[in-house]
């Protein structure tokens, strides 16, 4: 069965381009998107690259980790942390960042962009 979805999968880079347990920034459809190879969890994540706190293009350079069971990224500027699953800010503020689905096939990384 094929699942109908409104998502367009766009190739970002090769899986080898993203070091284990780290993020990179890809330029996709005019947007800067951070993609994380969370090797420790065997998961891939993607979010907007912009940290909403001081509007800096920096999340791909942040450290990833977990809070409880929730995977997160910490902005390198002021260490605001965000859930990689929901995009919600975890350091007690009201920010939220955009998250994107990621899939890896044949050694290539694709980011899902909603088409509306």
């Amino acid at each position: 069965m094929e699942i109908l979805e409104d998502i367009k999968w766009i190739k970002a880079c090769s899986a080898d381009d993203i070091p284990e347990n780290e993020g990179v920034c890809a330029y996709i459809n005019g947007e800067q998107i951070a993609i994380y190879n969370f090797k420790r969890r065997g998961e891939w994540f993607a979010t907007q690259n912009l940290c909403p706190h001081k509007q800096q293009m920096a999340l791909s350079r942040g450290m990833i980790g977990s809070q409880g069971s929730e995977p997160k990224v910490a902005c390198p500027f002021h260490k605001k942390t965000f859930s990689l699953e929901t995009g919600q800010c975890l350091s007690g503020e009201d920010y939220k960042i955009q998250t994107y689905p990621v899939k890896v096939s044949n050694g290539e990384v694709f980011v899902g962009i909603s088409e509306f």
Partner: peptide, 19 residues
């Protein structure tokens, strides 16, 4: 770091313990 986390810690680490 991963070696230390595997042997002595738990979870996936964070911006406090990594540095």
């Amino acid at each position: 770091y991963d070696g230390v986390l595997d042997e002595l810690g738990h979870g996936d680490g964070c911006e406090t313990c990594k540095p």
